[in-house]
Structure formats: structure tokens, C-alpha cells
Simulated scan of single mutants.
Amino acid sequence: MATTIVHATLTVDGFLADQDGGVDWMFGRPSAPEDDAVVEKVLERIGAVVGGANRTQTIEDGEIPYGGMLKVPVYLMTHTAHEPIERDGVTYTFVVDDIAQAVEEAKRAAGDGWVSLLGGSISRQCLQLGLVDELHLDVAPVLLGQGISLFAGLGRHIELERLETSAYASETHHRYRVLRSST
């Protein structure tokens, strides 16, 4: 069965992007081979992706998950039905207003791999619904002061178990299991 993960690079103050959605702060830092190995290990396990879309604009504007490095099925949340799109060896399936359905379809497609949830809103919705198994957070050594938060507005307490932490030249890498409450 697939493992559903939130996979994100964020700032020390918890932002995914600046106020305008920019992520230039992610690039240009010295890196070590160990940093690349951590990210590569995650990418090798991802079997499907769930993200958000503004109709087909996400694809048309080149906002392709993982920059097109992954050739896995992508499920995009939308408010308007649209036929699947095949581009560069990737099938983009549009799911209307049902994040649980999108995650379930992605889990079937991923098999024993990981389903990567991309974006703050998608991640928060899935955490609120109890659909997330693990968090994989790569933290860059920068403070933005303001921007698009990964967890702001989550609105609930969630306990985590640390599975793995590493730090090299450019980032610290954190992997946590989401603990399910017994109530």
C-alpha cells in the first residue's frame, strides 16, 4: 500500500514561497552530495503526485511538479471537470473538489511507492482529513518574514514521530511519521 507524504522545501520560518509565490530563495546555496542523495532517495520512491491546479493553466504555464523530473501520474485538484492531459510522458488527471478521491486514485497508481502532496492548501486539507502518513521537510537556512505558509490555518493539533533527521551543506532534512489519534 502506498505511503502518502507531504514533501516540501521550506524556510526556517515555515514558508513554501514568498508572498508572490516565488521560490528563488531555494536556489544558489552551496550543496553537498549528501543533500542531493537525500532528495534523490525521496524522488526514487514517489509513484504519484497530488497537487492543485488552476484548470489546465498549471501545465500550460510550465508549473510541472518536480520540474518534470518525475514521470509518474499526477492528480490535480480543480473546481472544473477536464479530460486527462498527457504531456511529456506524464498523465495529468483532474479531480473535481474531492481531495480524498484524488489521494485514493494516486495511491492505487503509486502501488507500494509514495504519493507526494504538493502545496500548502493540498497538504493542510489532507492533514485535516487524516490522509497523510509522513512529512518530508527540507529546510533551507533562510527567513522570509512573510510568504505562503505550509501549515498556517491547519487548525488542529497533530503529533509527529521523528523518523530521520540529517543536515549537510544546504539544508536540514526532516522525516516524520504522522501519529493517528486513538479517539
Rank of each mutant, 00 (worst) to 15 (best):
K107N: 05
P73D: 06
T165E: 15
D88Y: 02
P30C: 01
G153L: 13
G47A: 09
D133G: 10
D24W: 14
R124Y: 01
F94E: 09
A48D: 07
V90R: 04
A53P: 10
S166D: 12
E164G: 04
V142C: 12
P73V: 04
L154T: 04
V74D: 02
E159L: 09
L10I: 10
G51E: 13
E104S: 13
V178T: 02
L137V: 03
T3I: 08
S182T: 09
S116L: 00
V42M: 09
D112M: 07
G62W: 14
D88I: 03
S149F: 07
G130N: 06
L118P: 02
V142R: 09
L10W: 03
D138I: 14
D61G: 10
G89E: 02
H157G: 04
V12I: 15
R29L: 15
D36K: 11
G111D: 01
V103Q: 10
R29S: 14
P84N: 04
P84G: 07
G22I: 15
P33A: 08
E44Q: 13
E159V: 01
F94P: 05
V42K: 01
E104W: 08
A109L: 08
H136V: 00
T91Q: 13
G51A: 15
P33L: 06
R162L: 14
D20V: 06
Q146A: 15
M1W: 03
S121E: 14
E83M: 05
I46W: 00
A140Q: 08
H79C: 03
D61Y: 09
Y92Q: 02
T58Y: 03
V23D: 10
M26K: 13
T11I: 13
V139N: 01
A100I: 07
G111H: 07
R162N: 10
E161T: 10
G52D: 01
G67P: 15
Q146H: 13
E105F: 13
V50D: 03
V178Y: 00
A100G: 06
S170R: 10
A102G: 11
A152P: 08
G67T: 12
H173C: 01
D97M: 08
L143F: 15
E104H: 14
G119S: 06
A152H: 14
E104R: 06
E63Q: 14
V49D: 11
L117K: 00
P65F: 11
V6T: 04
V95Q: 02
V103T: 04
G47F: 01
F151R: 05
